[in-house]
Design a protein around this nucleic acid. Structure first.
Length: 571
RNA sequence: UGGGGUGUGGUGUAAUAGGUAACACAGCAGAUUCUGGUUCUGUUAUUCAGGGUUCGAGUCCUUGCACCCCAACCA
């Protein structure tokens, strides 16, 4: 017997764990106990087992973090193994995407493993169970089998085929493999206990006949093992010690163990441990629903920045370390819970505040004319690229008498706590001069189309020699030097914290305007040079990610904290 | 209806062995600031319920309650 997973470490031989203090966690505790008792000879091996039928999302990120994290902590290995036992839904397209996302998240994937690599071994083990009278071929259809299974508190009834002879079962099973029977006409079942209080143990199906085209074994098989009769077996073949999965498999654990107990295993019997999957407010992680969002055109594709898929988060500018830090912080539990998306966002802000260079961009432009500025004069002001990191250096930005400022930064009648531009008020234009508002021009509809101000030549660089203060510093872009950019603003895809909580249908809670596309935003020259995928801070607005493909399209990763918005909300 | 899992501020998590219920996010107040950002300080608010053991209970016992999962030839 070969054990492809047991030998080569697929994650770097233990990069030291991050310095982030690791909170107690029950999985680690159980693994540690196994280690101390020498259950697995001090060996720790886990696996991340996605089914290649969809894209990875934030929920998987937690599972990955736990699976790889535990292995790394104990000097073990975590394999990526595709759980590809259902040919109807699976595709190599997903395999490639999952490998790619895993790499982006920062996990080194060595040899990629597949449950389908073990089909022959799993088949041989099925014959072994038959030989020992522990499995039988059932000729009934799915509906009948399901009906016979009974219900909660109601015992099941035995199939009339339950007591066939070993020889007959073996013959039938081999003919199933040979393709003699129609799809769905027969199954192989484990013979356990039709009265068991745990429904999982009422003679579960091990094999079904299905003539789908498998993405790897192609047409070599017409029978496929079910999840329960493949997962633990794959774990055992690879030498997995701790098979970490989500809570809903709790009731499958006795079955996981039962199957393994019947087999001659190449390694110690692996152990399944369940933990709660990650849920976030204002989003969904159901593969089916996510697919429907894409199929119905509610979002633009699997990497639409409003989605919680890894591809989308990536495109939106979420740093992978922020995702990992978040996962470390929330820990591992057995309680179902839903974390506030604000917490994830706080990790994103914290990382981006450290790393993102600052730029000036005006999203909703309003013309500001500096009336005492010498006609045609251009000055250059020097701005820091990142006040949090001096190594990022400085850049020069052109200043002239005609500027773009943010519409929100001017009001004719300013409420008490409004610190920005209003007639008679002096503010600072970042890095340039103090200006005082002297008037404004309105269009036919009464809308302000232009604001007038005078500048104080003594405040060059942004400081007044007489020490006078201003309440506000505003960003700006020289009209003559501005570039044009498109900016996509995103709101939560679902307005409700728990989509579907009220009506049972998550789509009822879709935000009617989750994306706002702003065209002809005015940006300083340096923005034009932003690399594909780069994230920058547009000062006073938020973090924005340059689209990887479309030049000068920016996605708002997350806004800055906005105290003014809170003040407005309150009044 | 049977089985299993889980209950700590608004949210999510801590609390070696029964010994001051702590941290983060969110909120509020203030300081600093050339980003109403960052940083710093202060502050509001918590053990599902009842009973019991104990000098002392989030932790132990007991009786309830609530929520989640399980009756695919999905994973």
């Amino acid at each position: 017997m070969t054990s492809p997973g047991a030998t080569p470490p697929t994650s770097p031989p233990n990069a030291p764990a991050t310095s982030t203090p690791t909170a107690a966690n029950f999985v680690r505790e159980l693994v540690r106990q196994d280690n101390e008792q020498g259950t697995y000879g001090g060996r720790v091996q886990t696996r991340f087992p996605p089914e290649p039928n969809g894209y990875l999302h934030i929920g998987h990120a937690k599972a990955i973090h736990v699976d790889f994290g535990i292995a790394q902590e104990f000097g073990g290995v975590c394999n990526l193994r595709f759980d590809d036992t259902n040919p109807d839904t699976e595709d190599t397209e997903y395999v490639d995407a999952i490998v790619d996302d895993l790499a982006w998240l920062g996990y080194e994937v060595g040899t990629v493993l597949y449950a389908s690599d073990y089909f022959e071994q799993i088949y041989q083990w099925a014959e072994l169970l038959i030989t020992r009278g522990l499995a039988y071929v059932d000729d009934q259809d799915g509906e009948t089998i399901s009906a016979q299974r009974g219900g909660y508190g109601k015992p099941g009834v035995e199939s009339p085929y339950r007591h066939r002879s070993v020889d007959q079962n073996l013959d039938l099973f081999r003919r199933m493999r040979a393709g003699e029977f129609a799809d769905g006409s027969r199954v192989l079942r484990a013979r356990i206990d039709m009265q068991h209080e745990n429904m999982q143990l009422r003679d579960p199906v091990m094999y079904r006949i299905r003539r789908g085209h498998h993405h790897r074994t192609h047409d070599a098989w017409v029978i496929y093992p079910t999840y329960d009769w493949a997962h633990g077996q794959s774990d055992a073949i690879e030498g997995v010690t701790h098979s970490l999965c989500s809570l809903e498999f709790d009731s499958h654990r006795p079955l996981y163990d039962w199957y393994l107990e019947q087999l001659p295993l190449p390694f110690e019997q692996p152990r399944q441990i369940e933990f709660a999957r990650l849920e976030l407010t204002h989003t969904i992680t159901s593969k089916r629903k996510l697919a429907k969002l894409v199929a119905d055109g509610i979002v633009d594709g699997w990497d639409d920045p409003r989605l919680p898929t890894i591809r989308a988060l990536r495109r939106r500018g979420y740093p992978s370390v922020a995702i990992k830090d978040f996962c470390t912080f929330i820990g591992v539990h057995k309680t179902n819970s839903r974390h506030q998306i604000e917490l994830l966002e706080s990790f994103v802000r914290s990382e981006l505040n450290r790393t993102a260079q600052r730029r000036m961009a005006v999203l909703r432009p309003l013309k500001l004319v500096v009336t005492n500025w010498p006609a045609g004069q251009v000055e250059h002001v020097t701005l820091q690229n990142n006040p949090e990191n001096a190594d990022d250096g400085t850049r020069e930005v052109e200043f002239t008498g005609e500027l773009w400022i943010e519409r929100d930064d001017f009001m004719i009648d300013a409420p008490p706590k409004y610190f920005r531009l209003t007639p008679g008020r002096e503010v600072r234009l970042r890095g340039a001069y103090f200006v005082t508002c002297t008037g404004y021009v309105t269009g036919d509809d009464g809308e302000v189309v232009e604001v007038h101000a005078t500048y104080d030549p003594d405040t060059r660089g942004g400081n007044a020699p007489d020490g006078r203060k201003v309440k506000s510093t505003m960003h700006w872009v020289s009209a003559a030097h501005a570039g044009d950019a498109t900016v996509a603003l995103y709101e939560r895809l679902f307005t409700a914290e728990v989509p579907g909580e009220a009506t049972g249908e998550p789509f009822d809670d879709l935000h009617p305007a989750s994306r706002e596309l702003l065209e002809h935003c005015k940006v300083e020259a340096a923005v034009t040079d932003t690399a594909p995928g780069q994230v920058v801070q547009f000062e006073r607005l938020g973090y924005f990610a340059h689209d990887p493909r479309e030049h000068l399209l920016f996605h708002r990763t997350v806004g800055l904290k906005d105290e003014w918005a809170n003040i407005q909300k309150r009044t």
